[in-house]
Structure formats: C-alpha cells, structure tokens
Design a protein around this nucleic acid. Sequence first.
DNA 1: TACTATGATTAATT
DNA 2: AATTAATCATAGTA
Length: 369
Amino acid sequence: MAASLRPVPPQSAPRRPAPAAPLGLGRDTSDVLQQIMAITDQSLDEAQARKHALNCHRMKSALFSVLCEIKKKTAMSIRHEEEDPPDAQLLRLDNMLLAEGVSRPEKRGRGAAAGTTASPGGCPNDNSIEHSDYRAKLSQIRQIYHSELEKYEQACREFTTHVTNLLREQSRVRPVSSKEMEHMVGVIHSKFSAIQRQLKQSTCEAVMTLRSRLLDARRKRRNFSKQATEVLNEYFYSHLSNPYPSEETKEELARKGGITVSQVSNWFGNKRIRYKKNTGKFQEEATMYTEKTSTATRARGPGGQPSPGSCGPFPLTSGGDMVLTLQTLAFLQPPPGGVYFQPPAHGSWQRATTPQPASPPAGDSAVSD
DNA sequence: TACTATGATTAATT
DNA sequence: AATTAATCATAGTA
C-alpha cells in the first residue's frame, strides 16, 4: 500500500493498456484515467508537470468524483484487514524485559521492599564477582536494545510524517479522508511495532542465552586451581580444631585462591563434612599440609613472625591453636589402633558459639604471608 | 567406561 | 544466616 504513495520512480516501462473504464463513464474520463496511468511512466519532473496540468484540468472535479466512486467499490473490500488485538506474546516479552531489568534504562535503587524474596530462580549467592560479567553483558544488551528501539521510533516518526505529507498532497487529486489517513498511520505504526517486537524477541533470546550460560558456568564444575586448594587446605589442616574461618578470613582465602567467598564457604562445608565422614582417608593429606605449613612457618623464621610459642614444628600462634598442635601431633604418631584425630564424637566441631576470639585476622600464620 | 574426586545446590537444622 | 547432610553433575583417572 505504501508503494502506491511513493513518488513515482522514473521508468520507461512499456505502456500498459488503460484499464477498462467502468461502465457508464465517458470517454473524457477514461482519457484522463489513461493520462494518470501514463504518469507512472514518466520521469518525476515530467510527472510533476503533468500533475500540475491535471490539477488545472477542466475535468478535474469529474475525475475526483469518479475516483471517489472507484474508491468506494475497492476500498470497502480492503476495509479493516484485522486490527490485531493486544498481542499476548508481546505482553509476555514486555514483562520479561521488565523483569530482567532491560526495559529500565537505569537501575533505580530497589527501595524498601526487596522484590526478590527467596525466589527459587534467583541466585541466592552473593557472588557478585561471578555476576559482574553477567551484569556487564546485560547492560550491553540493554544499551543495544534501547538504541535500536530509539532508532525504530525515530524511523517510524519520520516515515509517518512522510506518508502523511504525501497523503496530504495527494488529497488534492484524489479523495483522502481523515479516517483513511489515520488508518494509514495506524498501519505504519503496526508495521513498526512488529519490527519492535522482533527486536524485543531477539533481546529476550539474548538475555536467555546469557542466563543459561551463567547457569551452565555454575553447573559445569571446574576444579579449583592448585593455588586455591593449597590455600584452603593449609588453612583447614592448620585449624583442624575449629575449621570455621571468619568472614574476613574467608575473604582473604578467596583473594589468595582467586575464588569467591561463597566458593570458600562451599569448600569448607564440603571439606568439613567429608573429612568427618572419612577421617582416615584424609590422613595423608593432613600430614602433608601440616608439614608444609610448619616448614613454611619455620622458613619464614624470625622475620615473619615472632611466633611466641615456637617450641615445636607446628604453628602455635594462639591459645586456640594449642589444641590443634596437640591434635596434629596425634596425626603424626597414630596409635596402633589407627584412631586419628576425629571431630568431636557427635559429629561436629562445636559450632563456634564463641568463634575463636583469640585469632587476630592479621596475625594468622596460615593465612598471612 | 566405570569409578572416584570435587564443586555446587538444596532442604533441613540450629 | 551459617552450617550440615544429602545429592547432583561433571572432571579427572585408571
């Protein structure tokens, strides 16, 4: 439909035979009609000239009424193609974009009521480090989305004005009701909103793939680096009596191992439970790491730390670690029965109701270096 | 390919 | 909220 509104391109196509004049129309009219059809075959300039001539033609008003009649016959059948109702899918897309924070150009602070209250789909962890990549990509998507949307809207506006102008101009020659103009504008808008819908759709897809990749990354386990396991194990075995690192210690371990705090928490959770379940299995590892830390401590020697109670090969940084040292000694000299140090019989290390008050974060020999 | 190790997830517990 | 215990799913290995 828009094609018929566009300025006639210059072309030298073979002249089409004039359509059969409607019954009862005079020769003059059909001549004029033919003239109009001929316009399409002329160059633009020529067409302009002819248009002007047409405007001044004595039969102009007659032609106008003829066109009105033709229009009445043809337009009726085209009337109201289908005013598509508010699309359900579009609504869904909008909702999703809104939910993902794509629709909102700026993340406004979520005020009093945090919307995500234990949503199962959400990420319970605070691994902001893991999410930073996700967020960066999401904001990239958001940027693209908004710039494209803006482009489309501008194009739509421009096109609408263009078409409106054309229609207005044509209204001098043929009947163009305001309703028809509205309709045309509506059609244009619906076409452009279809394009926008596609944009929304692909944005949604991009977000989805981004999301699934994040989930995959979480699910696809990758073993920690040697460095990370080393750091974690060193801490664990040198704090066997109470392997519950404080939040600050966790942060430090995370930093040293190049992992996140929640990964440290996971690791300690797993380690404690697995160690407890099968202490024997970990003896080799235990001796290995206790030896390692002890030699490391010794190697650091007087420079690194005063080590007030350095009467043995094991770190004795605080009263709390005294117990550890004794227990670690027990590892090295396992009784004949093979009973190594085990966590308190009922299964668990005392859950630190008084979480090792005597362990200054900075002075922890196993962590600081 | 079966088996173990291990990081992550989840429900229950404290 | 932190932790435990069970479980899942994959990585690594023999």
